[in-house]
């Protein structure tokens, strides 16, 4: 809804073409801004690490070699040494960098172990939201009429309940498991994207260039993907980039409220909230997991902000 409202500009075909050309030197443009570079580094590091560690965790579950799941970590995240409980951070050994928790487990190792799950939630939720939003939004804008009315009323209805609360309502009967939370988040996350796509398609639809494609009988599949979807997607990508962060925040808030993963498996939000009872003396317990969420989300927001500035021509080169 952000972009739908803030852009009431009359796009012309030439602008569209220029935009397409800009997309080709996307990286060059993104990296002309320091904060965007920081954002990209954070995002790439987070997603890259999550992919590698996630794969290892998956393989370890698949093969039964539990060692695989922490081969890259400074220590076994499930290794509890009661003598080591609540140790303050120290630079002596890597696993002690961020201190230990009440069970004597290394907080750093547990954070690294936890990241793939945050990444997975955000990726699944955002992509499913884009997919559902694209189908419904494009259909609504393209078809119009009663279909549009129904889709948009439905969308508005979903939007009227804050995602957090709707997820709570849905995931309690879903037994509040990890996959339950993912499903719950995916069920509530699409309406913003539907509004976006509809707004964008309404704008794009009347451009000469799209009209011409329609008259020239471009194949329907081509038409929807090449002309409507791709021309609508720019502001949506910008929003989606920050939305990864929103998903992670909501997910960690759910963990804080006790909805989601079962206790032994580390989760950033849950770690931060478990540590709250040890504040302020053993501050590191919540601090490092909390800060890591903050940094990851900031990374996504910086990337999204920059992209938004790029597509709106709001940049200093």
């Amino acid at each position: 809804m952000i972009n739908e409202t803030n852009k009431i500009k009359n796009d012309s075909e030439s602008k569209l073409i220029r935009k397409r050309r800009d997309r080709s030197n996307f990286l060059k443009l993104m990296s002309k801004d320091k904060t965007a570079i920081i954002g990209m580094v954070i995002v790439v590091a987070f997603l890259g690490w999550s992919a590698i560690q996630g794969l290892l965790e998956y393989l370890s579950g698949y093969t039964g070699y539990s060692y695989l799941s922490y081969i890259l970590l400074p220590s076994n995240p499930f290794h509890t040494v009661l003598a080591d409980r609540l140790l303050a951070p120290s630079s002596k050994t890597v696993w002690m960098w961020f201190g230990t928790n009440f069970e004597g487990e290394s907080i750093f190792s547990r954070m690294l172990y936890a990241m793939p799950r945050d990444a997975l939630v955000s990726v699944i939720v955002v992509f499913s939201a884009i997919a559902i939003g694209a189908i419904l939004g494009i259909a609504a804008a393209y078809r119009g009429g009663w279909l549009e009315t129904i889709i948009m009323r439905l969308t508005d209805s979903f939007l009227a309940i804050p995602a957090l609360i709707l997820v709570i309502a849905i995931s309690i009967p879903l037994r509040a498991t990890y996959s339950g939370v993912i499903l719950g988040l995916s069920i509530v996350w699409w309406p913003t994207y539907t509004r976006f796509f509809r707004g964008q398609v309404l704008r794009v639809k009347n451009m000469d260039y799209v009209q011409a494609a329609k008259i020239n009988n471009v194949k329907p599949r081509n038409f929807f993907i090449k002309y409507l979807f791709l021309n609508s997607i720019d502001p949506i990508i910008a929003y989606a980039a920050l939305d990864f962060g929103n998903v992670i925040l909501t997910y960690s808030t759910l963990a804080f409220l006790g909805i989601g993963l079962s206790v032994p498996i580390p989760e950033l939000g849950a770690m931060a909230s478990n540590g709250l009872q040890f504040l302020p003396a053993d501050w590191w317990y919540s601090f490092f997991p909390g800060i890591s969420i903050l940094i990851i989300v900031i990374g996504f927001v910086l990337v999204g902000d920059r992209y938004q500035d790029l597509i709106n021509n709001r940049i200093d080169y």
Partner: peptide, 23 residues
């Protein structure tokens, strides 16, 4: 705004509580 937006909500609340109330 980046910091307040990106911090998990409970951290902001806890920070205010610890700082202004407890400290």
């Amino acid at each position: 705004y980046l910091v307040t937006w990106a911090s998990p909500p409970f951290l902001v609340a806890i920070f205010l509580q610890v700082f202004f109330a407890y400290d």
